[in-house]
Design a protein around this nucleic acid. Structure first.
Lengths: 197, 197, 197, 197
DNA sequence: CATGAATGAGGATTCATTCAT
DNA sequence: AATGAATGAATCCTCATTCAT
């Protein structure tokens, strides 16, 4: 899944800005808002404390900026996949592949952090709650219904199916990126079986 | 000549200890170590700051105590399930049910926090790394192999199957307990499909 | 040097009270007021926290009580020695012996602590400043003047001689009770040479 | 591209460090580790709380740093004095003068505090115990033996003589710097008499 | 634009003291 | 009289943020 789209790249054209955001994403996604110290971001980015504040008003703003990008990226990925050629099953499989790739993980973690963390104030929370699970369900529903009609997707309420499936994917990404010895990301076939007939 | 007899004191201590641990579990599991302030635990438990330190040396010790309990609980649940009567499939289904119940969630979150958080020092990390995924795989392997022989469990390397399945379950519990509007825990049938033939 | 005189013993007739005072003296003299925790006294005395407060209003009162006893004891010891038979030199030597014995040390330390410590409020400070060095000098002056006349005590202002000598004795007691490997209390002959002709 | 060049930064850091150490020495030596609150050091140094921790990891490290300096200083002073020209007696007298000067007192007090205080952890205690009285005795022994041979120093075991003498000097410095009205540092002649023939 | 010394509000922890039993 | 659980003010320390250079 593409982490940031074209427009965002334009918006974040400044090299320094990107550098800081990349460092911040890396740390926030691993440790959450409260667990992240500015000094960690500063160190990861290889710059001075002061410079961060030239580009971002606060730790919060840094986090909110990242969350915005993650949400938009996720939406785009889903919309993009529905517009691909092929069977419904193949499209869904493609989406799962995109979500599971390395670049996708930090964004899932970020959104999870945003939902649980404490330091996350209004703005990020509002942003996140704007895009509830139902929005994603709406985007994917036609695809799943098509799959149910052609007999490749399991029967039942497609809303529940999608919601449960996205929850599983998010959970796996959250947990799977920690440590090989502790968790193992299942292969795509196994995941697809969950929604297959 | 204690004004309260030994028994009463022990009872008071045990009760307080449990009360504090329950409050701490609730907060830690939601916010992680760094995100948890002692004041939150204190408020949740309805006691004074000082009293926590009467029973636990530090925030860390509190966390480690909880992690120990969670690990022991998980091991017990798995061992218990394998000893139940019934088919392999039924036993696994029973295990999933147990893991997915409301009381289970905080423990999964706790262990996730323990693996990611920062304030978690040696002791908790060692404890956790002692019980790697492989240990759990070992306990459940006979069950899965039996299921593969009787044709109820999907074929393939049972180790991979179990590891992936446990990862999914953990991820779902992590993420699923946040907010109904954001995530939805899939029903057991859907989860079981992942490992079913 | 007798640590507490008859009257004081009557006053502190209660066994518990004595027990607490003894424990407190031992700890205060070693660690000072700020360095002493009630829990240390409680442990040393082998009683409960609450009980200390049956006998003493506060840590402060405990300290002040001890300081009072120490001051009175020191004064008495000096007066007592001047009234003994023998030459001036012998009397002074006797005083030094008394001061240097094991029981004397805690009181010197206590008075030093009282002069330097911070937690010592008005009452103790007033008590201590009531009995300044000059008072002790007054008591001992006749003895030293006699010694100068009979040629056993070094010449010079007897006030300075006494003040310096008492300061040395106090310092030695302070420092000498710490650790054999670190400090060594000099023998009496060596100390006496300081004021001998 | 640092706005302040390397040299300036180093200079600022060194100055601040010294400023904090000076303030800390002043407070620690008077009140001991437990009796010293960071706010006192902060006030004495005229800086903010946070800045102390920019330069020293903890109150302990601050204390340990000072103790190290004190020990090194004492050793140097002794070694230096033995290398001076003049008679043994003169050299010893010179050493006493050096030890007794105003700047010396805090160091003696510091070392005393380090030996008695409680908050003093391993590192300081080890440092101090590395340099026992015996080490100082070794350095000064040739000087005292020379003095005994030329008839200016009192006879007897030079080890005992030195150990007792250093103990007295330390005690005097400890006690003597408190309050003129309470203690009086004896003049050098008086102190020297203790070891003179 | 860039640095890092400096600040201080906030959080963890200690410990004198109280109080129900 | 005696206990020890319980309290909370005071202390140490951290870390987001500012600012002189």
């Amino acid at each position: 899944m593409a982490p940031l789209n074209e427009e965002q790249l334009i918006q974040i054209r400044d090299e320094r800005r990107e550098q800081i955001l990349a460092a911040a994403l890396s740390v926030f996604s691993r440790r959450g808002v409260a667990g992240t110290k500015m000094s960690m971001i500063v160190k990861e980015a290889g710059i001075s404390h002061g410079l961060v504040y030239h580009y971002f008003k606060s730790k919060e703003e840094l986090f909110v900026t990242l969350v915005k990008g993650a949400i938009e990226g996720a939406q785009e990925a889903m919309s993009f996949v529905t517009s691909l050629p092929g069977t419904a099953y193949d499209k869904i499989r493609k989406l799962v592949e995109e979500m599971m790739d390395e670049e996708g993980a930090p964004f899932f973690q970020l959104i999870y952090q945003a939902r649980t963390s404490d330091g996350v104030p209004e703005e990020a929370r509002i942003l996140i709650n704007q895009y509830t699970l139902d929005d994603y369900v709406s985007i994917l529903r036609p695809l799943f219904e098509e799959g149910q009609r052609d007999g490749t997707i399991a029967p039942g309420d497609p809303g529940e199916l999608i919601a449960g499936f996205l929850t599983v994917l998010t959970g796996v990404m959250m947990v799977g990126s920690v440590d090989e010895r502790q968790f193992r990301i299942p292969d795509i076939e196994m995941l697809m079986r969950m929604i297959s007939k």
